[in-house]
């Protein structure tokens, strides 16, 4: 087995891993403002992908569907915040865990009823024929995942660091009450974080679907790995999820090739267990994750 083929597989895997990183980043966004995450995040990915597919079927251009899909994801994020998170947080309860799981199940059933149980192809104008870049073969489709993920995460990080709104976001995550005393509405900040998280989930769906197809069950596999990435990287480092996501993606591809395709899911779970046992704050994390 020539080394170049191993490198080839590792790189393909790493590019896919960026999708896990993006979904994990969605967890980080809401955890920062509210110490809560949407356990139904995978269903947001899936429903947004189906919604975008429907728009494509109606004949809309991909480049119009992309922003429409992101807006739809943001709206779903707001629904999750309103229906699943706000009341629980106001009562300082952990009820958001169960509520977001239930909302996820609801979205899952709704998707099955509206779009059916079959996996469907997701058309894209981006070609999937391999091109040769820096000594490896990649498809423009895989590259579009990398570009999309890094561009959006970079943009959000830039907004967080350079704008007053971003600093307010940080302020609320450090100390909600002190943020309120500055005139920053904690409620709106949490809403914004859920909207962003939903949009990021939708982007993950739109980017990954042309490669994997769209189906109601796409959510569970993606979200479990994204969750592993978030736990391994920690819930407060955007840079960390990118590195861990790419690492996990590469590891998966190699595991399924060398050990067998049935072992594809194993590395993520092993990393998750290792992280929880050895370093619950995550490799790049500061805040301890409460094990629930």
């Amino acid at each position: 087995m020539p080394a170049s083929i191993v490198a080839q597989m590792a790189i393909s895997g790493a590019l896919m891993g960026l999708v896990y990183a993006l979904i994990a980043y969605g967890f980080q966004l809401t955890y920062a403002t509210s110490k809560s995450i949407n356990f139904g995040q995978g269903e947001l990915v899936m429903v947004s992908a189906f919604f975008s597919l429907t728009l494509l079927d109606l004949g809309l251009s991909y480049w119009l569907v992309l922003p429409a899909g992101l807006l739809f994801g943001a709206a779903l994020g707001l629904v999750v915040e309103r229906a699943g998170v706000r009341l629980a947080l106001e009562q300082k309860s952990e009820g958001w865990i169960l509520l977001t799981i239930i909302l996820g199940l609801f979205f899952f059933s709704a998707a099955e009823n509206i779009w059916g149980r079959d996996d469907r192809p997701f058309p894209t104008p981006i070609p999937s024929d391999s091109i040769h870049v820096l000594g490896v073969d990649v498809t423009p489709l895989e590259l579009s995942v990398a570009v999309g993920v890094l561009a959006v995460m970079g943009l959000i990080e830039l907004l967080k660091r350079r704008t007053l709104l971003g600093k307010a976001f940080e302020a609320v995550s450090v100390d909600r009450d002190a943020g309120e005393l500055m005139g920053i509405s904690a409620k709106r900040t949490v809403m914004l974080s859920y909207a962003l998280s939903g949009a990021v989930a939708a982007l993950a769906g739109i980017l990954v679907s042309p490669i994997t197809t769209v189906g109601p069950t796409m959510a569970s596999a993606l979200v479990l790995k994204a969750f592993s990435v978030a736990v391994v990287a920690g819930l407060d480092s955007g840079f960390g999820v990118v590195l861990v996501g790419m690492f996990l993606g590469a590891l998966e591809t190699l595991a399924s090739f060398y050990v067998g395709s049935g072992w594809r899911e194993a590395p993520g779970l092993v990393l998750l267990i290792l992280a929880l046992a050895v370093r619950p704050t995550g490799v790049f994390g500061k805040a301890a994750i409460r094990k629930v």
Binding site: L164, L165, G179
Partner: peptide
């Protein structure tokens, strides 16, 4: 951030 209420956001 102390002046958040009366400053432009972006």
């Amino acid at each position: 951030l102390g002046a958040y209420g009366r400053l432009p956001r972006f």
